[in-house]
């Protein structure tokens, strides 16, 4: 049970950091708060038996921090404190409240219906293990790897990883598109055909 408490505290820390990031007036503090939340997440990953995730999470965190800090250090923040957009805030609060109630019912359950499995007791540990139990049982014979996550990522579900590689490619190409100084050729170069 101690691990539950640790995780609860860490998620609470992430919440606090997230609130600071959203509400503090200084952008640099906000960026650092986001970074702290990310590091807390990688600690949670480690506690939950996912070292494969903690590693990239920290790295991605660092890259994001470097990008964001560079972005705001070279630019003056001229944004003003504008009065809160009451309509949008109200919509978000209302929608968020509905979502939270729905989520609570989904976790706790209402009557006899199925609920999200309790924390720490996934289907894998119960009577109806899903597809991942089959992976765990025979990944060493099927794929010849010692790291089951990598076996899933690059063999059982390698097609997803093709999509993943494509996403990075797309984002990078999109970044180049956006960063071009001139998108359209000038009028002089553009006579009607």
């Amino acid at each position: 049970m101690t691990i539950d408490l640790f995780i609860l505290l860490l998620i609470g820390f992430m919440l606090a950091a997230g609130l600071i990031a959203v509400e503090t007036s200084d952008l640099l503090s906000a960026v650092i708060a986001v970074g702290a939340a990310g590091f807390a997440l990688s600690v949670i990953d480690l506690l939950l038996g996912a070292p494969d995730l903690a590693f990239p999470q920290v790295l991605v965190e660092i890259i994001t921090l470097v990008l964001l800090i560079r972005m705001i250090m070279t630019r003056r923040d001229t944004s003003r404190q504008t009065p809160r957009d009451t309509l949008r805030t109200a919509v978000v609060l209302l929608g968020g409240g509905v979502f939270l109630v729905a989520a609570f019912l989904a976790v706790v359950g209402l009557g006899a219906g199925a609920t999200v499995p309790a924390f720490g007791e996934p289907l894998l540990a119960g009577g109806h293990p899903g597809v991942s139990a089959a992976y765990l049982w025979q990944f060493d014979k099927d794929t010849g790897v010692a790291n089951c996550v990598m076996g899933i990522l690059l063999d059982y579900r390698a097609y997803d990883t093709l999509g993943e590689a494509t996403v990075i490619f797309v984002a990078i190409m999109g970044g180049y598109v956006v960063l071009r100084k001139v998108g359209r050729k000038r009028q002089a170069q553009e006579p009607s055909p």
């Binding site: 997803d160 993943e164 797309v170 999109g174 998108g183």
Partner: peptide, 21 residues
């Protein structure tokens, strides 16, 4: 897999919408 490809298509469209910069 559906989600991954939705994401690829969406990311490509973000870049393409901004093509004129």
């Amino acid at each position: 897999n559906l989600y991954v490809f939705i994401e690829v298509a969406a990311m490509a469209s973000y870049g393409l919408v901004a093509f004129g910069t």
